[in-house]
Design a protein around this nucleic acid. Structure first.
Length: 488
RNA sequence: GGCGACGUGGCCGAGUGGCUAGGCAGAGGUCUGCAAAACCUCGUACAGCGGUUCGAUUCCGCUCGUCGCCUCCA
């Protein structure tokens, strides 16, 4: 098994690095998932989609991948929301984590291997806090436990922040129980009515950050390969995770840090606090999930990406172009089969259309992999797929005319394209591009139109076409006769 | 104030020290009753100003502009 070398932009190093897994042939990835106090929005979906696609690619090239994506189900925001609605906080957590699973399932990318929840790992979390206290990296005060930031000399190495220049240094609040304003809570003493767990410091709940450290180490171990999430998590979330983990393990936490850029609206980050979010479930009501995938994959994962109607339409256009290509290939293949013109032996002359198709297929695959291996350049990979689309269309268009068509060649190229797209999480089902299995009356209507056309009765022909359009089908006249294709 | 990213043709969006990204839209053509789909041809773009270089959109510096983080946030 020969796994190609891939490069990853590592936030920690601030440059692209060759990826070397900790365990040969295996990749462990931890991605920060949502805190469940509301429905996930399009911005939340980006890392979910990106890392799902990345994992698919890694598997495709031969790695065994363990993708861990947490669900934070205990947190201030959840409590806040529960109080506002007058319900129990775990009701909120359950409602929205169920919704999260449901919404992301609809993307058709499967699930991560493990989706750990904070509430199911309290023992790990408490033990982790204990170790931090014992090691002198954390201290208890008033039932809460804080991380002693000054104790961790490398604090700031991920985000490039210098502790003495941080804004909130200037904003130290009065009466704070912390030793330093930089310190952050790893365990919060329970207030009345809040969810709580027993701990050596009394009833309480975990602070933000600690659950990810505890769970990532639990499932992937120290020095695991890749830790991912949105750019906005670099500081303080990931910085703090590093501080916690490395203080206890005494060794590197994650070795590669990958951060996706923000989804924006009118150039502003899509975020709950700005109130400009677009819910994933709302999106799904309007668009095919693959449109979202192509929308994301059309730009590099580290770039910000504007969520606009125009950009979405463009992604929808890509989907349509892929589908048309499958449709075209399929209808030519069907004709060949029906006419028994398919030949068993290949007639590929290097300067003929077949040779060009074979060359283009090869080239597209090479380009696709080169792009994916270069910091997961999905936009470039898509461009490679489009090169193949053009080659297939061209072949399907011209080869039958010159009578040099080889159905096996066409089928191969089509299958290669399908394979590349499937790696990217974009799959097509035959119903989307074949005429088989269509209702008889539709086909009769199509035939009726054809008769009318031949008779020169274009008014009747167009009426039949309109009827078909109403039924959701588009008529396409091809050299092989009229065809029906489902409207997208 | 500190840290960081970005500014590519009408739009979106890759990329590179000299060699075609790609998609959408647009113009012309092929096919076609029309339409749709597809194919062919067409745009000499890289914020501005300097510098390095035989040569820079690509490297360096400065300026302008936009954005993110430093507080909850994917």
């Amino acid at each position: 098994m020969n796994i190609p070398n891939i490069k990853i932009y590592n936030t920690l190093a601030r440059r692209k690095e060759d990826f070397v897994p900790r365990d040969k042939g295996h990749v462990g990835i931890y991605v920060c998932g949502p805190t469940v106090y509301g429905y996930v929005h399009v911005g939340n979906a980006r890392p979910f989609v990106f890392f799902a696609v990345f994992a698919r690619y890694l598997r495709h090239i031969g790695y065994e991948v363990k993708l861990v994506e947490n669900i934070t189900d205990v947190d201030d925001k959840i409590i806040e929301r529960a109080n506002k609605e007058g319900v129990d906080s775990d009701e909120i957590a359950t409602e929205y984590s169920d919704a999260y699973i449901e919404d992301t399932c609809a993307l058709g990318l499967g699930r991560p291997n493990v989706e750990p929840r904070a509430t199911e790992h309290m023992e790990d979390i408490i033990n982790f806090c204990k170790e931090l206290v014992e090691a002198g990296y954390a201290y208890e005060t008033g039932g809460s436990v804080y991380y002693r930031v000054r104790e961790f000399l490398e604090y700031g190495k991920l985000s490039g922040q210098k502790t003495d220049q941080m804004k909130h240094c200037e904003l130290a609040r009065e009466g704070e129980a912390k030793e330093s304003p930089l310190d952050f809570a790893i365990w919060k003493a329970a207030k009345p009515g809040e969810p709580n767990w027993e701990s050596p410091w009394g009833p309480g709940r975990p602070g933000w950050h600690i659950e990810c450290t505890a769970m990532s180490l639990r499932y992937l171990g120290a020095k695991f390969d890749i830790h991912g999430g949105g750019r906005d998590l670099v500081f303080p979330h990931h910085e703090n995770e590093i501080a916690q983990a490395e203080a206890v393990t005494g060794t590197a936490f994650a070795r590669y840090w990958m951060h996706n850029g923000m989804i924006t609206r009118k150039d502003e980050k899509m975020s709950k606090s700005l109130g400009n979010i677009f819910l994933l479930r709302e999106f799904m009501k309007k668009y095919d999930p693959r449109v979202l995938i192509l929308f994301f994959l059309g730009s590099h994962y580290r770039s910000p990406l504007e969520f606009s109607e125009r950009n979405l339409d463009e992604a929808a256009g890509m989907l349509e172009r892929f589908r048309n290509c499958f449709w075209k290939a399929e209808s030519v293949l069907q004709e060949l089969a029906a006419a028994e013109r398919a030949r068993a032996e290949s007639v590929v002359s290097e300067d003929g259309p077949g040779g060009a198709l074979v060359a283009a297929t090869e080239k597209a695959q090479v380009q696709f992999h080169a792009e994916m291996c270069d910091d997961v350049n999905t936009a470039g990979a898509l461009a490679a797929a489009f090169v193949l689309v053009r080659a297939i269309n061209e072949y399907a268009e011209t080869a039958p005319v010159t009578n040099e068509i080889d159905s096996q060649l066409l089928r191969d190229a089509r299958d290669r394209l399908a394979e590349l797209l499937e790696i990217l999480g974009v799959k097509f089902s035959p119903e989307e591009y074949t005429q088989t299995g269509m209702e008889q009356e539709l086909l009769e209507l199509l035939e009726k139109r054809e008769q009318a056309r031949k008779a020169g009765d274009y008014a009747a022909a167009d009426a039949a076409r309109d009827q078909l359009a109403e039924a959701g089908y588009e008529v396409r006249d091809t050299p092989q006769g009229p065809k029906l294709v489902k409207k997208s």
